[in-house]
Simulated assay, not measured.
Amino acid sequence: MSTPGSVAPEVAFDPATPPVIEGFSPTVCGESVRDKFQRKIRENPVVPIGCLATAGALSYGLYCFHRGNSQKSQLMMRTRILAQGFTVMAILGGLVVSAMKSPRPH
């Protein structure tokens, strides 16, 4: 038996499997987390592109800042803002398209 405040892991951590949470099942309707992620990418492939563009602009901007190139760093931070806006618009566009596809009750 463990003492209060000590942490005793019951099972080794495996990042490939989802965490076990009481009352929550990640495989609702037989769909795993990986399957859901792949389905979401197929439904709206523009969102991951926007996320990668945002992360790329941020990373390169931070690299330029670290190297002392403030002009290029500022340009990359502005590019990051544009990429974030693109990503948000892609998410909203995907919501509108999925709302128009879903059948409405009479």
Rank of each mutant, 00 (worst) to 15 (best):
M1E: 12
S2P: 10
T3V: 14
P4F: 06
P4L: 10
P4M: 03
G5L: 10
S6M: 14
S6Q: 15
V7E: 05
V7W: 11
V7C: 05
A8W: 08
V11T: 12
V11M: 09
F13S: 00
P15M: 03
A16N: 11
A16G: 07
A16F: 03
P18I: 00
P18R: 00
P19F: 01
P19W: 04
P19H: 03
G23Q: 05
S25H: 10
P26K: 05
P26E: 02
V28H: 08
V28A: 11
V28G: 01
E31Q: 09
S32D: 01
D35K: 15
K36W: 08
Q38D: 12
I41Q: 12
E43W: 01
N44Q: 13
V46M: 07
V47E: 09
I49M: 15
G50I: 01
L52W: 04
A53V: 05
A53F: 03
T54L: 14
A55W: 01
G56M: 07
L62C: 08
L62A: 04
Y63F: 11
H66P: 01
H66I: 12
H66A: 14
N69S: 09
N69Q: 07
S70W: 00
Q71L: 11
K72G: 00
K72R: 15
S73F: 01
L75M: 09
L75S: 10
I81W: 02
A83S: 12
V88C: 03
M89V: 06
I91H: 04
L92M: 09
G93Y: 05
V96R: 02
V96W: 14
V97N: 04
A99W: 14
M100S: 09
S102H: 06
P103M: 04
P103S: 12
P105T: 04
